[in-house]
Amino acid sequence: MKPPPFAYCRPHSLDEALEFLAEHGDEARPLAGGQSLVPMLNHRLARPAVLVDIGAIGDLQRMDRNESGWVIGATVTQRRVERDGTEGCDLLRLAMPFIGHRQIRARGTVGGSIAHADPAAELPAVALTLGATMVAASPDGEREIPAAAFFAGPYMNSLEDGEVLSHVIFPTVPPTTRCSFREFARRKGDFAVAGVAAAVDFEDGSVTAASLTAFAVGANPVRLTSAEAAVAGRHLDEAALTDSAEAAAAEIEPWDDIHGSSQYRRQLVAALLRRALQEVAP
C-alpha cells in the first residue's frame, strides 16, 4: 500500500497553484489535508501525475464571519473549526465531532471534505442543509456555486477543469432556528450508515421553515422535501413526526452494502429523523 509515483509541488499562492493545475490538466490533483486522497493513493485508487499541495496557501486559510455567514477557506482544518467554533452556525458545530477522529480532523479540511463529495460525509450534508455557497477559483476569477448544484454524484463535484474550491460560505442562522445532526455509524468515527441534518424554524410552536437532509443514503446528500412538507406549518407532535419520518423513508433511494440493505437505511433515516425532530421541537 504505497502510493504510485507522482511529482509534487507546494505553491505559496493560489495563482501559482492554479497555474500548475492548468498546466497539468487532468493529470494534476490538488492536495489539501490528504485524509481522503492519501489513503486513495496508498490503495492506488488515485494516480495523479502531479500533486499540487495547496496547504501552504495563506489565502485558503481564512476563517471569518461576515454578513452572509462564516467564510471558511478550503484548507481550514476541521479541527480548527471545532476548536474555534462557529457562532451562529450551530449545525456545523454539531456535525464536527462526527467527522472521523481527532487525528483525522487535525489534518482534514473543510474544503477537502466538501470537494471530495463522499456520499457518507458530514460536511456536504451540512452545506446542503444550510444552503452554503461554494466559491471556486480559477485563472478567470471566482465563481459561486450553491450547495444544491455542487454535488454531482458519488465522489464528484461540479468544479470545472482548472477550478479549485477556495472557500465555503456557511450562512449563519437566526437564534430561532433549531438544529439537529444525527448520524448512525457502526463505530464512533466511522462513515455514516445513514444520517440526517435538520434546521427548523418555528413560530408559536409551529414549523415555519424546515430544511431536512439525509446522507449516506444515495449518491449525494439529499434534501427531504416530502418530509419537510409533512411538517410545514405543524406542531411537531407525534403525528407530525410519524408523517415526516414515513415521508423521508419513502422519498429516499438508498443503496445496499455490507452494513445494511436499502430497506434498513430507510428505517434508519426514519428513526434518525424522528429523533432529530424531537430534539428541535420547542
Binding site: 457502526r186 463505530r187 464512533k188 468515527g189 466511522d190 462513515f191 455490507i258 452494513h259
Partner: peptide, 27 residues
Amino acid sequence: LYEDLCFNDLGQPQTAFMDYLVPSAIE
C-alpha cells in the same frame, strides 16, 4: 456484533479494513 468477512457470489471479498470493525474504546 461488529466483525464480518463477507464475500459475494463470485467469491470476491467485500470487507475492507475500514469495514472490518475492530471495536474501539467507545464500543
